[in-house]
Write a protein that binds this DNA or RNA. Structure first.
Lengths: 217, 217
DNA sequence: CGTGCGGCTTGACAGCGTTAGGTGAATTCC
DNA sequence: GGAATTCACCTAACGCTGTCAAGCCGCACG
């Protein structure tokens, strides 16, 4: 009894300590990724920031990619949460517009995360600890977008030729994503002076919605 | 006279040989960049492909970035040329639509080039051999886009509140760019099945133009 | 014929992600 | 209580990268 209680207590403490270290790695990595960028952040820098050797990280994460993806998943969850806050709005078209603006805010407030989430191709699909393909966390936000568009289609709010919810969703998503990513890659380009991306996205939402709905006159 | 003729001849040959080597480097780099990607292509691989030592490249280009940019500039020129082929179309709105489709074709036909041209941030601005800031070659296509939009505004083809040519241009450009870049980064994502990007761009052009022009009923 | 220029090579450096093998303290077993 | 075991972490190294200082060597020139 006592031994078992001690054992479980010891085990629990050990696991908690390991979890703490793991979290410390994640925190250090997140901070460096945000300030220096993902590519420029080295495993050695992450380890040094928390007083460990680089190899220690490999006891908690398979490789650098796994570490990045772990952070990425949390970001997808945060994005999904931001999207769901919009869920209350009744009119699916208005909801779509609000989602676009919220998505833009998320991207511009978390540029480093956004870059990795949507501007880099994944090498191998996300795998969890068991090696199984992880149900995409971004499915959350994307499915929410699709269902909002689908709802508008069902209610005959969009023009009849725009009946493909997936295509329409990808048009909206892609459009906003494009303005955002152009801002990230070219805002410091001396040759092109970009307008404020929030303004451009706002205009784009207005234009796209007006071009999509029925009785647009 | 004769000596001067000989000297110039020798010099010319030498310079031609150097230019040939330089071009060989560019050709090898281009091929490897396209097949393996820019990041995955090493200086050693480029040099090996044409039978030189890696350091030989540094006698023709300041560093890897300069080599990449040299290729990039040629691509910008090609894109500009593709855009100018559209220049004949009278109606600036129709011209805009055609430019969007041509831009999409260029991107999907030259994915590797496009990736570097518009999906990576430049570290330092383009410098020519003299160290002066190079007049942006992409200005060509971008200025062409802006002037097409501006022409439409001048002719009162767009809605009165859409009077900012730069914002409108960046909205069109960003929108199309977004669909394309989402395709590049997520077309192999098992969680999201993207529609054919050409189709999505076509729909987007229709929607955006209908949402932008006057008398849209 | 000597001299020098310059394209190219040799050999190296520092840094990267990553790995095999070892250390030492905490825990468990007898 | 002493021995055995576990395991988080470290030491040392590997192969790779972009890049550079110094030297070689053939060709053009005085």
């Amino acid at each position: 009894m006592t031994t078992s209680a001690i054992r479980t207590g010891s085990l629990a403490r050990r696991e908690r300590q390991k979890a703490d270290t793991r979290q410390a790695i994640l925190d250090a990595a997140r901070e460096l990724f945000v300030t220096d960028g993902v590519e420029a952040t080295t495993m050695r820098a992450i380890a040094g920031k928390i007083g460990y050797t680089p190899t220690a990280i490999y006891h908690h994460f398979r490789d650098k990619d796994a570490l990045i993806k772990e952070l990425c998943m949390a970001d997808f969850a945060a994005l999904g949460q931001a999207m769901h806050k919009i869920g209350r709005i009744d009119d699916p078209v208005d909801r779509l517009r609000r989602m676009g603006l919220a998505y833009t805010d998320f991207a511009l407030d978390n540029p480093s995360q956004y870059r990795f989430m949507f501007m880099t191709a994944l090498k191998h699909p996300l795998l969890d600890a068991n090696g199984a393909v992880v149900t995409a966390p971004d499915e959350d936000a994307y499915v929410f977008l699709c269902s909002t568009v689908e709802e508008g289609i069902q209610r005959d709010l969009y023009r009849p030729e725009l009946s493909d919810a997936a295509e329409l969703s990808q048009m909206f998503w892609g459009g906003i994503h494009g303005v955002i990513s152009l801002w990230f890659t070219h805002s410091k380009d001396p040759h092109i002076t970009l307008r404020d991306p929030r303004e451009t996205v706002r205009t784009m939402c207005d234009v796209m919605i007006r071009g999509s709905v029925r009785h647009s006159g």
